[in-house]
Amino acid sequence: MQFLISRYNPETDDKPHMQAFEVDVQRGMMLRDALLDIKRQDESFAFRHSCGEGVCGSDGVNVNGSNKLACITPISELKTPIEVRPFPGRPIIRDLVVDMTQFYEQYKKVDPWLVRKEPAPEQEVLQSPEDRDKLDGLYECILCGCCSTSCPSFWWNPDKFLGPQALLSSWRFLADSRDQATDERLDQLEDPYKMFRCHTIMNCVESCPKGLNPTKAIGNIKNLMIKKAV
């Protein structure tokens, strides 16, 4: 089966170009297996990958126009010809490897850690199973970047709009019954860019390999702001 792969080596190329590779596709093969096969054919081919089971979030790529994790994307589900490109909107370092610095910076901006103001008890801080259930669909984020790099608002304003990933993380802590920085977190988002560039285009929801819903999280943050305002 033929794969078209975006190639770019900054030391020799002016701009990216597509290169065709033949891969002997077996039943049950994932896209990452094909990329590994291509790596065997051509030592100079670069892409990030690690766990191979969709939890480390390294191997996000753009396949036939959609952002996906290569290791959990069955080749059988892809339409031919299969075209693999780096994430859109990010500076390309080499081949499928992009610079994700800005994405991580936005994540760090939402203070993605649990804030407790009271002194810690000797044992665990109690949390009811119902309150814990509110974190499902939020804490599972693997920071792969599929969502933010598929979001047009993030393409236009990657420096100022936090992007769906960071906003999902923000809600993950706002929704945590143990967290004690709700007001600070909401105040931080009070700016025309950080959150309000979201126009519910919902590419993030479609591209999330873990089935999470950043758009809903953003809606929840806005609702909480309203609740706090009245």
Binding site: E190, Y193, F196, K222, M225, I226
Partner: peptide, 12 residues
């Protein structure tokens, strides 16, 4: 005011 233009704009 720069402050007012996020949430307030959206709410309005």
């Amino acid at each position: 005011s720069r402050k007012a233009s996020g949430f307030k704009a959206w709410a309005w």
